[in-house]
């Protein structure tokens, strides 16, 4: 029996721009994945609780407000702390080039900026999903 990749798409913080998150969610569905969407305004704790209950393989974070250095890292650290180190974390939004190395070091393995093709994200997830 085929194993489906389960992905949680979450929007941390107060940013309401969900066009990208929804486009990516659809593209992942069209690539055969099961995508759980959390909706807007999630705290790191809510995202982690959802990731546990939904037993997802991937957490995708979307943020366009510029608060990624705080909020993405909050999520990544809390996931480590709660023993979800084997869940792949990816992020997208308006992320300046200079911020990417730090984000990767913190465990956000893929960072996708504006103009990224959905295929790139799909391939990245398929290649890097650990479970």
């Amino acid at each position: 029996m085929e194993r489906k990749i389960r992905v949680l798409i979450a929007k941390p913080g107060l940013d309401g721009h969900d066009r990208g998150a929804k486009v990516v969610a659809r593209a992942l569905r069209d690539a055969g994945m099961e995508v759980v969407y959390t909706g807007l305004h999630q705290t790191a704790e809510m995202i982690i609780e959802a990731a546990i209950q939904e037993d997802v393989d991937v957490v995708g974070l979307s943020l366009l407000s510029g608060a990624h250095m705080t909020l993405f890292i909050d999520v990544a650290r809390l996931m480590q702390e709660k023993g979800l180190g084997d869940v792949l974390i990816v992020g997208g939004g308006i992320v300046p080039e200079g911020d990417i190395p730090k984000l990767k070091k913190e465990g956000i393995k893929g960072v996708f900026g504006p103009g990224t093709h959905c295929d790139v994200i799909v391939d990245f997830i398929k290649k890097n999903v650990k479970r």
Partner: peptide, 10 residues
């Protein structure tokens, strides 16, 4: 608390 990380960002 919900303002965390967002001060002056956009």
């Amino acid at each position: 608390p919900l303002s965390r990380g967002e001060f002056g960002k956009c």
